[in-house]
C-alpha cells in the first residue's frame, strides 16, 4: 500500500515538473518552429507546423537586415565595460566605507546603496534633457553612465557584505609589510572577492543586457544601439513577413540563451546569491 502511494507520488511529481516545463518552453519552441517556415504556413489550425522546406534564408535576412553583428558587438562592448566599471567602483567604495576610518562612511555607504530604491524609468525624462544639453546623446556614455549607475548600488551592497566577512588579519599583515592602501585593495582584497565579483558581474549583465528603454530614449542613430534593436527596428521593415520576424526574434534571443545554458551552474549560483542578499 505504501509502496503504491509512493509510486503515485512520483508520477504526480513528474507530471507537475513536465507541465511547468512545457508552459515555460513551448512559446519558445513555437517561435523557432514558425521561424523556419514561410509566412503562409502560419495560418494553420495546428499548434506547430512542419515546414514544407526549411527556410534558412529567413535567418540570413534576419542576420543581415537586422544588423545583428553590429548590435551584438555594441551589446558585448557596452556590457563588458559596465561590468568592469561596476566591479571596480563598488570594490573601492565598499572598502573605503567598510574598512577605513572616517566620519561620513556610514552616510556615504547608505547613500550609494539607496540608489536601489529609485525607479530607473523615473530618470528617463530628466536624463534625456541632461544628455542632450551635454551632447552625450548618441554616444557610448549615454548608455554606459546609467547602466553603471543603476547596477552600482547592488554591487556596492554585495561587496560591502563580503568585505565585512573577510578577516582583518590579512590586511594587518600587509600593512606591516609596508603595503599602501591601493595595493591592499587591488592585490590583497580583490582576489579574495572572486565569488562576489562573479555574482556582481552576472547580476549587472542580466540587468543591462536586455535593456532597451534607456537605449531607445538616448540614442537615435544606430551607431551604439544594442541587440534588442534588431527586433525593435525589424518589425517595421518586414511588417508583413512574419516568418522573418520570428527568425530575428529567435536570433536575438540566441546569444543569451546559449551563454546561459553553458554557464548555467555559475549563473544560477550568482543569481541566488545576489537576489537573496540584495
Amino acid at each position: 500500500m505504501r509502496e503504491d502511494n509512493r509510486k503515485i507520488g512520483k508520477v504526480i511529481l513528474w507530471i507537475v515538473l513536465i507541465a511547468v516545463a512545457v508552459i515555460q518552453l513551448f512559446p519558445l519552441i513555437w517561435l523557432v518552429d514558425f521561424s523556419l517556415g514561410s509566412s503562409n504556413e502560419m495560418f494553420t489550425n495546428g499548434l506547430l507546423i512542419i515546414p514544407e522546406k526549411i527556410r534558412w534564408d529567413n535567418y540570413v535576412k534576419a542576420f543581415v537586415d537586422g544588423n545583428f553583428l553590429h548590435y551584438l558587438r555594441n551589446s558585448v562592448l557596452i556590457n563588458t565595460l559596465a561590468v568592469v566599471l561596476v566591479v571596480i567602483i563598488s570594490i573601492m567604495a565598499a572598502f573605503a566605507c567598510q574598512r577605513m576610518k572616517w566620519k561620513m562612511s556610514a552616510l556615504v555607504s547608505t547613500l550609494l546603496v539607496m540608489g536601489m530604491m529609485i525607479p530607473i524609468h523615473a530618470t528617463l525624462l530628466p536624463n534625456y534633457k541632461i544628455y542632450n544639453m551635454l551632447h552625450l546623446t548618441d554616444t557610448l556614455w549615454a548608455l554606459l553612465i546609467p547602466y553603471v549607475a543603476f547596477s552600482m548600488p547592488q554591487g556596492m551592497f554585495l561587496m560591502t557584505g563580503f568585505i565585512q566577512s573577510l578577516p582583518k588579519e590579512l590586511e594587518e599583515a600587509a600593512v606591516m609589510d609596508g603595503c599602501g592602501i591601493y595595493r591592499i585593495v587591488f592585490q590583497i582584497v580583490t582576489p579574495l572577492l572572486k565569488p562576489s565579483i562573479a555574482t556582481v558581474a552576472i547580476m549587472t549583465f542580466l540587468n543591462n543586457w536586455n535593456e532597451f528603454m534607456m537605449a531607445s530614449t538616448y540614442l537615435s542613430t544606430p551607431t551604439w544601439k544594442t541587440l534588442p534593436f534588431s527586433v525593435l527596428e525589424f518589425t517595421g521593415e518586414y511588417s508583413s513577413n512574419y516568418a522573418v520576424q520570428f527568425a530575428v526574434m529567435a536570433l536575438t534571443a540566441a546569444p543569451a540563451v546559449i551563454v546561459y545554458i553553458i554557464l548555467n551552474k555559475h549563473i544560477t549560483k550568482g543569481v541566488a546569491m545576489g537576489a537573496v542578499k540584495g
Partner: peptide
C-alpha cells in the same frame, strides 16, 4: 530560460 531572453 525565459528570464535571460530580452523583453523586446
Amino acid at each position: 530560460i525565459p528570464n535571460v531572453i530580452s523583453v523586446a
